[in-house]
Structures are given as structure tokens and as C-alpha cells.
Design a protein around this nucleic acid. Structure first.
Lengths: 170, 170
DNA sequence: GGCAACTCCGACCGCGTTGGTAGGATTGAG
DNA sequence: CTCAATCCTACCAACGCGGTCGGAGTTGCC
């Protein structure tokens, strides 16, 4: 499993806020409303939205009739930011560490007697695929998708026809 | 983190076998040799290679001078098969279940009052990216990459220039 | 002022998975 | 026979995930 429920719930929450944000006078939405609307545990949502706030993706107003709203327009919220805030990072393997100077990704066991870590090529490609999907999707896309149904699902998704990639018996 | 060490060790193991398989008279390689060569725990490797054998990706000969060898040529071993055997499946979220009749992926909470689960679009795109990277890479690619160094890393990988996607403080 | 509705914050906890280890049974070459 | 290898099952510590609880701070409204 790639993502946990943090990402799932967090994105659902943002979509809900994104719907509200298009109204003429967008009022802040309380977590209680969202929790009931999406059938999610309120206390858990609180911790999730805290991550989004720390990343400056949402803003909050406290007190009665308070709540949350988007810090930017849905078109300007890319999903790589969101997932980074919620899940911490998208790295395919634990051996992927960041060289904090250059920002380049590299592998722990590089020095394996001459030939570098052969698996690196694979993990780089996988990560590239994930990152591209994340960067190419905005919150506005998801909000629109929620309205119009399944339209746009095939845009760059290329659902594997021959390989089910289904959940096995395990 | 997307993959566990099962995938990491398993792929390393296959790469090692892939190197051997190109010799004129390919002898089976014992796990002990691989474990020492890659600095991996032998007992754990045994369990991992069992998964590969069950998926008919490797063959074994028992007894003295026994060991493992690839069941096919490295060019015919695609990484989606390998990861499926090792990790069980590649699904971005727990809510992705397989409709075992059609093989189509769908989501648990479809009926959210009219507008379908809006996050589905995102997870489909992500999964598509992963699956395409996995299907587009063969064991032969990894073996060749291990020899020639970093050549070929950019082939379709599109390393994100502006987004470090680095491991954060967490 | 006081209450109710919110956000905020830290501690706690059961559970399943991950990453190993231990120990032995079986098989085959020399 | 003996040694080297695969095979197989059980066991275990540590960790992260998903979630709860209780309380403290903030604000609108009567």
C-alpha cells in the first residue's frame, strides 16, 4: 500500500473545502460538518488538518462559527504538496535518503564493489511515475471530477488492460 | 514508503542471478553466496526467494552444490511480476479492491451522495504511474544498469527538477 | 458574563505488519 | 556417511497506523 488513510482523509477534506470555496461568500467549514458529511472520525481529522495547516494549505478561524478554508485557489494546490504534507514524503524505499545539499536522491549502498546498486534504476522510475501523477493533478481537478462523475479518468492514466494488478489472496 | 525490503532484497537477488545467467554454463547460485555478496541475512533471503519460486520466476536444485537460477531470460522478466510476487500487490489505497469478475479497480465508498469518491481520480493516476514504470522495466535493464553505471537513468524517468521530494524532518 | 461551538494539543493504546531469528527436516553430490 | 544446500514452521521485538480521550484556549451570541 502506497498511501495511508492520512492521505485519503486529507484529500477528501480538501475536496470538501474546495467545493465551499467556490461560493460567493465562502464561510469557514467546521470539522464537525466534514466529519459527518464524509463519515470520518472527528478527533482523527483534527490531527490530519493540523498537518495541512502547518503546510499552509488551509487557514483556520477559531471560536464559534469558526472552521477551515483553503489558503489558495484549488487550481493552485498541487497534489504533490498535499501528499508531502500528509504522508511526509514519497520515496519508494527506505534506502532513499536526501543529500540535503544538492537535493538529489541517492541510495545507501552505492559502493557495492564496482557496480552501483542495480535496483536504483527501478525505484527512480517508480518514484518518477508517482511524482509526475501527483504534480499533474490539482485540487480543482478532483473537485471537478467529483461533480461530473467518471469523466477524465483516462487522461494520462492508462489503466493496465492486461494486468489486473488485483489484490491477491494474501 | 512504497516498497518494503522484500522488494529490495528480492530484486537484488534476481539481479545477482541475472548476472550468472549470462555465462555459458550457468550453474545454480546458492543463497549463501548471494547473502555474503550483498550483505543480506541468509535466513531472511530464504523466505524471500520462496516467494519468487512460488511465482515461477526462479527454479531451484536441492542438495549439495544446489542453488537457484532464473526460470526465464532476464529480458522476459518484467518488474510488475516481480513486485507482485514479493509485495503482494500495488494498490495506492486500502479502499482499492478488485472486482474479481471484470478485474476493474473500484473504490469502497462510491455512493457518497451523488458525487462519487473524488479522490479516486488521484489514486488511479498514481497507480497508473507506478504500474507503467514497473511494466516498462525488465530484469535485463537492471542488470545492464548495474554494469554501465548511471547510464539510462533518465530514460523516461523525468527526475523532478524543482521538487526535491526529499525526506523531511519526520 | 456565560454558554456553546470551535480549534488546538499532547498523551495514550490496540493491532497488524515488518524484519528477522531459531531450529530442524529433507535432498543430493562426493 | 557427510556435508552442503534447499525447505518449512514457529517465534519474536519493534514500529507505524488508526483512533480515542481529556483538556485547554478562543470567539460569537444571548
Amino acid at each position: 500500500m502506497i498511501f495511508t488513510t492520512k492521505a485519503e482523509y486529507g484529500v477528501r477534506l480538501l475536496v470538501e473545502l474546495g467545493r465551499q470555496s467556490r461560493q460567493p461568500r465562502p464561510q469557514p467549514v467546521s470539522l464537525k460538518v466534514i466529519a459527518e458529511s464524509e463519515s470520518l472520525p472527528l478527533a482523527y481529522l483534527e490531527r490530519i488538518v493540523a498537518l495541512l495547516k502547518k503546510a499552509e494549505l488551509v487557514e483556520s478561524t477559531r471560536g464559534a462559527h469558526g472552521g477551515y478554508r483553503l489558503a489558495r485557489a484549488p487550481e493552485d494546490i498541487r497534489m504533490d504538496e498535499v501528499v508531502l504534507a500528509l504522508e511526509g514524503a514519497v520515496a519508494p524505499m527506505t534506502c532513499f535518503v536526501d543529500d540535503s545539499d544538492t537535493g538529489r536522491v541517492l541510495c545507501n549502498h552505492e559502493e557495492d564493489k564496482g557496480h552501483g546498486c542495480a535496483t536504483k534504476l527501478l525505484w527512480m522510475r517508480v518514484q518518477g511515475g508517482v511524482v509526475r501523477a501527483l504534480q499533474g493533478t490539482t485540487l480543482a481537478d478532483l473537485v471537478a471530477f467529483g461533480e461530473h462523475g467518471a469523466a477524465g479518468l483516462d487522461g494520462g492514466t492508462a489503466r493496465p488492460e492486461d494486468a489486473p494488478i488485483a489484490v491477491p489472496s494474501s
